[in-house]
Nucleic acid binder design. Structure first.
Lengths: 152, 152
DNA sequence: GATGAAAACACACCGTA
DNA sequence: TACGGTGTGTTTTCATC
């Protein structure tokens, strides 16, 4: 487990919010010179505290207005079945996230589609035909708020 | 809705995977000069196709080894109740995502904790006491795969 | 698409605790 | 040994042509 001091936490929180901020701006904000801030960020990256930097796309503006969460129960839960299921799910382009979970459902999928008609197509032709898929529960996303989390 | 050509889609997909790539590397990959690639990315940002750039933290390495998804049903669902609930949820640092959804549950929360004992504390002292919260379902995250989505 | 100024990065080196 | 500051070469960004 990685130990962080106060400044590391502030840097990570700031960058988790907006990764476009540069080392000199962050340094000014937290009382460091540009190289000092840069070295800390570099050290956090090398130490594995940072998984990566990603662009967040505006899927709605890009024509994908519908996001649905699917809870999926597997009918058969053997080892092979899990792998078959995961491999088949990974081949569906509309699936953004595959979460293997413990609880009432076995998997949770985040699926995007152009509209509800498009989602129905994905559901009928892609999801319902997945190997081993049993019961499916759907929740349509109305709105979403992302928060910094306990580190921010 | 924003219209994209083939190259725009490739640029967005590449950056959604890894936003550290610079304009000249992307240009080389997709047959553009560095300024041409840079201008396209700039245009996509200004046009609103891009929501932002974020650092993805390695929450496990940082001491938060447990992620739980909570489905929450509200007991009372008046307009006031929704707002009260959302405001109260936003004050819990362990909550990373608040999703207002349509279906069997009203909200879906992504919660991180140091371990299961820590999660129990959050559940008992924070979640169960939320105003209007009724039934709660929990799913512990085992593993997660993020995929580029239909644009990638 | 090419060019060049401005900005940011990335490293070496030194000082301090 | 660990961390921060200063100075500086290099790379990237970004505007103009």
């Amino acid at each position: 487990m990685i130990e962080l001091d106060e400044i590391d936490r502030k840097l990570l929180a700031a960058l988790a919010r907006d990764a476009t901020q540069n080392a000199s701006a962050l340094g000014r904000r937290f009382g460091l010179s540009q190289p000092a801030a840069w070295r800390r960020i570099r050290r956090l990256q090398d130490g594995g505290a940072i998984k990566g930097r990603r662009l967040r796309l505006n899927t709605e503006a890009l024509g994908f207005g519908v996001t649905v969460f699917l809870g999926v129960k597997l009918a058969r839960k053997g080892r092979v079945s899990l792998e078959d299921f995961e491999r088949a799910v990974s081949a569906i382009p509309e699936v953004q996230t595959v979460e293997h979970i413990l609880g009432l459902y076995d998997y949770r999928l985040r699926v995007v589609a152009r509209d509800l008609a498009d989602f129905e197509r994905v559901l009928r032709r892609r999801i319902m035909t997945l190997p081993g898929a049993g019961e499916v529960e759907a929740n349509v996303l109305l709105s979403e708020e992302r928060r910094p989390g306990p580190l921010g």
